[in-house]
């Protein structure tokens, strides 16, 4: 059975304030779903409902088909979550804090130390494993928190703005960790404010505002469907400097509406068409042997789509 996260009419009210309104969503299989929305949109509320940190006013939060509120132990047995920026008992070391989570999750004693070392190594905290957490910076604590999510080798991971508190290098490392998790057949549900992060890491995106789901689809489809003229923006990276000849050749390709240089080795392409068109274009570019090394939806395209959608709900 594929791993799944499902919200069925999930609602959370605080008095008359509706934090989440009848959310219906289902993610299945190994992929990374970005969860976007402005502050107060209901992102963290949703993730807290999926970890039973808060109770739903109506509806159900299901993990692998099990209601989290009714059977938390089974529902969360193969799912880990990092919600906000947790604090760890200050007198514990990262190794001890992770050992506690590993024991609670039933990681066998002979595997525990290996997993702790692997997780800490992955977040570049291995050399700090025996130092007390109380003396750590916010960024270091967040790295240990991320390690705690990896410790039990879960099939589902929920991350609530995981790069919060990290410096640019830390943010980049976390993105790489998330990408590597994706390669290990996990379902990742990640909320973020950072659109370039979502574009870089996620396959699909769910946008939420005022507690309501606006859209859920692949990033490319969302950009295409909701961009002002139905076009997609793709950023193409080259291994060498782009000359006018290359620009002209690309500009003449079918479904390419416009091209512009971002810098010496990157260009932006405005294209018309769905994912099949993009696949064909990618194939053509590769066949042109002009040094294409990357081909991805532009984060600025997602940003303009996001802003358009949020504007509509104001």
């Amino acid at each position: 059975m594929q791993q799944s996260i499902e919200a069925v009419n999930l609602t959370k009210k605080y008095g008359s304030f509706v934090a989440l309104s009848g959310l219906n969503l289902k993610f299945e299989g190994a992929k990374c779903v970005g969860f976007l929305g402005p502050n107060g949109a209901g992102k963290t509320t949703t993730l807290k409902l999926f970890t039973d940190m808060i109770r739903p006013s109506a509806g159900h939060a299901l993990i692998n088909g099990i209601d989290v509120h009714e059977n938390k132990r089974d529902a969360l047995s193969s799912c880990t979550a990092l919600i906000e920026t947790p604090e760890i008992y200050p007198s514990l070391t990262p190794a001890e804090a992770l050992s506690m989570i590993a024991e609670i999750r039933g990681v066998s004693s002979n595997e525990r130390n290996i997993r702790i070392e692997e997780s800490l190594n992955e977040v570049k905290m291995l050399e700090w494993k025996d130092k007390k957490v109380g003396k750590f910076s916010k960024g270091m604590k967040q790295r240990v928190n991320i390690a705690s999510v990896l410790i039990s080798d879960p099939s589902i991971i929920m991350l609530d703005e995981p790069t919060t508190g990290l410096d640019p290098r830390g943010m980049s490392e976390v993105r790489e960790i998330v990408k590597s998790l994706k390669r290990k057949n996990r379902l990742i549900f990640m909320s973020s404010h950072l659109l370039n992060e979502v574009t870089d890491v996620c396959d699909e995106v769910a946008m939420i505002d005022h507690g309501k789901l606006l859209v859920y689809d692949s990033i490319l489809n969302v950009i295409q469907k909701f961009s002002e003229n139905g076009s997609n923006i793709i950023e193409v990276g080259f291994s060498r400097a782009i000359d006018e000849n290359i620009m002209e050749k690309i500009g003449k390709l079918e479904n390419v509406k416009a091209t512009s240089k971002i810098d010496e080795t990157n260009l932006r392409m405005e294209i018309l068409g769905d994912i099949k068109v993009q696949e064909a274009l990618f194939y053509e570019l590769a066949n042109m042997k002009i040094g294409v090394i990357s081909f991805k939806p532009s984060s600025s395209a997602l940003e303009s789509t996001y802003l358009n959608m949020i504007k509509e709900t104001l």
Partner: peptide, 8 residues
């Protein structure tokens, strides 16, 4: 937040 989101 470190512990409650686990199967406990």
């Amino acid at each position: 937040y470190f512990i409650v989101g686990n199967p406990i």
